[in-house]
């Protein structure tokens, strides 16, 4: 079976490492990080993972644009093992994030996935701050990674404003999130969950039963999580081989194929 990890970070955090337990509750704990793409590929090879979507920790700790350049460079030097994702910021302050500048740059760098850290970068993830970028991201079917680590309200609000936006939930902590995510899965057909923090017993089966396997993307959240945990949770989940294969890589490949750039 082909596995593509939908969420890995490379580079060192300023403080090693901020672990999300659940929303607004972090633990500071040292983990084994991947300094660069080469070290991450060693981790992928150890676990038999074909490819990985990467972010760079400098997106969070230095600046989105600074980290974006590093992520693109690491991906470019990896063959096609690493798929870069970029962080966004408000175009009203940084014009390089206006659609007319951002999308050609993404195309040139082979970037098809975006991320937003609104609390960290101190902006509001909504129409007032992010128009027209979010509308364009939605209409071009570019997946946007969001984390509820600073609370669920921004995710609920942005989906109310942009109900067709493709959102991939990531880094949500290990407490079960079902009371917060099941309503989103029910209301928004383009809402997906990356499975790195999906540790709750029976949850993969439950989501497949209620919403279908097409709503989950295998991911690890490396290095917050060792890849082996989410890998075994999916492999040992008891769902059908077909559903497992879709989660392992098929769903992500489908989403990437739908991006219009």
């Amino acid at each position: 079976m082909r596995f593509i990890d939908a969420s890995c970070a490379i580079g060192y955090r300023t403080v090693n490492y901020e672990i999300v337990n659940h929303e607004r509750f972090y633990v500071q704990e040292r983990v084994k990080q991947a300094r660069d793409g080469r070290e991450l590929i060693e981790e992928l090879d150890f676990c038999g993972i074909d490819q990985a979507v990467i972010s760079h920790n400098a997106m969070i700790d230095v600046d989105p644009g600074y980290g974006n350049k590093l992520a693109a460079a690491e991906a470019a030097g990896s063959g096609d093992r690493l798929l870069p994702s970029w962080a966004i910021a408000p175009p009203v302050t940084e014009p390089e994030y206006a659609p007319s500048a951002l999308f050609p740059a993404m195309q040139a760098a082979g970037v098809k996935l975006l991320r937003a850290y609104p609390a960290r970068n101190r902006y509001m993830l909504g129409r007032v701050a992010m128009d027209p970028l979010l509308g364009e991201i939605s209409s071009l079917r570019i997946p946007l990674y969001l984390s509820p680590s600073e609370g669920w309200e921004p995710i609920y609000q942005v989906l109310q404003e942009y109900p067709d936006l493709t959102v991939i939930l990531t880094n949500y902590g290990l407490w079960s999130h079902a009371r917060l995510t099941f309503p989103l899965l029910r209301a928004y057909p383009n809402f997906y969950i990356e499975t790195g923090d999906m540790q709750t017993a029976g949850e993969i089966r439950e989501i497949c039963r209620l919403f279908g396997p097409e709503r989950l993307l295998f991911g690890s959240g490396f290095p917050s999580n060792a890849i082996g945990g989410p890998l075994a949770a999916l492999r040992g989940s008891g769902i059908s081989e077909e559903a497992m294969s879709a989660i392992a890589s098929g769903n992500l490949l489908r989403l990437l194929g739908e991006v219009v750039l």
């Binding site: 150890f46 407490w175 017993a201 029976g202 060792a226 989410p230 075994a232 989940s237």
Partner: peptide, 14 residues
């Protein structure tokens, strides 16, 4: 029943 033992088993196995 909070967490799936297979998840932690994978963390050990890998």
């Amino acid at each position: 029943p909070w967490y799936d033992p297979h998840y932690m088993l994978g963390s050990v196995l890998f």
